[in-house]
Design a protein around this nucleic acid. Structure first.
Length: 257
DNA sequence: ATGCCCCGCAAGGCGGGA
C-alpha cells in the first residue's frame, strides 16, 4: 500500500497539478492539507474519475483536509479530539481497507511567536500527543501524516539560521514534536533518507526553489506495527518545478500489509 | 528591517500562510 501526504495549497487552484501527480504516482491513499475549500465546493468528480473515493473536512477560505483513496474507507472521523471550541479544519482520519488507520493533519503554523497563534500551535500539539498515545495503545498499523509545520532538526533546513526565531523551529516546537515521536513513532522519510538536503517545502518568495532553499516539514509518523511493514519512502520534489505548483511537495511511504 | 509570492474572498486590498 502506497500512502502519501500533499499540502496542495488550494485544491481548486491546483486541480491540474493534483490530478497529474495522482496519475503518475498512483498512490493508494492520499491525505491532503490546505484544500482551502468547503466540502460542497471540493472538485470531487475529476478525482473520482481517477478511481479515488473522496472524504473531505473543509472550511471556507483556508485550512481544510481530505482523504482520497482507491481502497475502501471505514470509520471516517473529522476533527482532532480534545477541544470542542476549535473550529479549524485540520484533522481527518479513517480505517483504510480494514488494515491501516490513517490520520491526515495540518498542524498550525504558529507565527508570530510568541503570541496567541503560537499558544494555539502548542495546545494543538498537546492534543495531538493525546491522540498519538491512544493510537499506540491500539498496537495496530497506523500513520499520522501531514504538514506538521515543524522543522525537526537543523539538517532539515537548507539555512537553519534563518529559522531560529520562527515558530516552525523554536526549541519549544521541536521539543513538543520530539515528545510525540519519542512515544514510539518512526519518521519514515528521515529513517530511510539519512542524507541532508531532503526537503518538502520551498517558499514562493526569493527564488527559494531555484536556490534549493528548502525545509522538511511534511512528515509520515508510523506506529511500530506500521514501521515493521515499511518498504520504501520518498518525496516527489520534481513537482515543485512545474507550472503553478504548490509550495509543498508530496511525501509517501510504501507498506507491505 | 522589510518585502519578496501565492491563495481565497470579492471587487479593494487584506488575512493567512511559512
Amino acid at each position: 500500500m502506497k500512502i502519501a501526504s500533499f499540502n496542495i495549497n488550494g485544491v481548486k487552484a491546483r486541480l491540474g497539478a493534483l490530478t497529474d501527480w495522482l496519475s503518475e504516482a498512483r498512490p493508494d491513499v492520499v491525505v491532503l492539507q490546505e484544500i482551502k475549500s468547503q466540502d460542497e465546493g471540493f472538485p470531487r468528480e475529476p478525482i473520482e474519475d481517477l478511481g479515488y473515493r473522496v472524504e473531505t473536512h473543509g472550511q471556507k477560505g483556508f485550512n481544510g483536509v481530505a482523504i482520497l483513496s482507491r481502497l475502501p474507507l471505514e470509520d471516517v472521523r473529522h476533527g482532532l479530539p480534545g477541544d470542542d471550541s476549535d473550529a479549524q479544519a485540520r484533522w481527518i482520519e479513517a480505517l483504510v481497507d480494514g488494515k491501516l488507520r490513517l490520520c491526515g493533519l495540518y498542524l498550525p503554523n504558529g507565527n508570530p511567536a510568541p503570541g496567541p497563534k503560537y499558544d494555539y500551535k502548542l495546545a494543538w500539539m498537546e492534543r495531538l500527543k493525546t491522540r498519538a498515545e491512544a493510537l499506540l495503545a491500539e498496537e495496530i498499523p497506523a500513520i499520522m501524516a501531514g504538514d506538521y509545520n515543524v522543522i525537526p532538526q537543523a539538517e532539515d533546513a537548507a539555512n537553519p539560521k534563518d529559522w531560529l526565531t520562527d515558530a516552525l523551529f523554536l526549541p519549544e516546537t521541536r521539543a513538543a514534536f520530539r515528545r510525540i515521536v519519542n512515544l514510539g513513532f518512526t519518521d519514515a522519510i528521515r529513517t530511510l533518507h539519512r542524507e541532508p538536503g531532503v526537503y518538502t517545502f520551498w517558499d514562493y518568495q526569493a527564488r527559494s526553489w531555484e536556490r534549493n532553499n528548502g525545509i522538511r516539514i511534511d512528515h509520515l509518523l508510523l506506529t511500530p506495527q506500521a514501521a515493521d511493514r515499511m518498504v520504501t519512502a520518498g518525496t516527489d520534489a520534481e513537482v515543485r518545478g512545474r507550472e503553478k505548483p504548490s509550495d509543498h511537495v508530496p511525501v509517501w511511504v510504501e507498506l507491505d500489509l
